[in-house]
Amino acid sequence: MLKILKYSFYDLMRSRWSYVYFAFYLLLGVVLLFLNNNLSKAIITLMNVIIVLVPLIGTIFGVMYYYNSKEFTELLLAQPLKRSSIFLGQYLGVALSLSMSLILGLGIPFIFYGLFKSNVIWDFSLLLITGTFLTFIFTALAFNIALSNENKIKGFGYAILLWLFLAVVYDGIFLMSLILFEDYPLDKLSLTGTMLNPIDLSRTLILLKLDISALLGYTGAIFKRFFGTNLGFIVSLTMLLVWVILPVLRIVSKSKRKDF
């Protein structure tokens, strides 16, 4: 698996798209910091970008990589290699190279700006950690979609739909159901709803840092325990991890049963 990972990673690190992605984040970081000259505002804007864009790019890139390297995958399948190593290797290659672009692209301008001397370093690190998690989750979801759909167009379609659903539609439905059931205690419903969507989960993790003042304004005991203590942070991180593990497991089992 490590060998496949190594080659996928090298292959991607040299691809045009990695550079584009890296350059995009580099530019974003520079514009946010040096034109705006305001670290706190930059962090808030970055959060919006990371939560929306990282999943989108993870999905699209994952699907694209899978379909583009289909023949090469077949070549690998004829080698004395386990299927799980081939797909996990490729998956990790994509996820790692995307994460690298993200971390370096944003990290470099922030380091030049003097991040280490600033107290927002924790907020920033949390952003990068969340971004990395989202990359791993959505690349895994993309691989799942691609493994289940031979048809490229269909695969891309489902990938976009998945992103649209998790990034926008889900929250719409979520909001409607909260308003609809406002007469009932909603603590549990709202927290569960958040746990079931990795984008909401990451958002919550960041809210814990940026908007704790507002979050603490609510009476519900579960809310209070969740946001007032480290519980929220730990639970959210654990759930993110689960969100990585489950799709990866499905990649393994699906790839074992698939015909190429």
């Binding site: 080659y7 996928s8 090298y10 040299r14 691809s15 023949e71 077949e74 004829a78 004395p80 290699l81």
Partner: peptide, 21 residues
């Protein structure tokens, strides 16, 4: 089993390799 493939040389139909290698 995957080890048996050590004893097979396979030439696939369409040769498409990672473009950046």
């Amino acid at each position: 089993n995957s080890e048996y493939r050590k004893h097979i040389d396979y030439l696939p139909q369409i040769a498409n390799f990672p473009n950046n290698l």
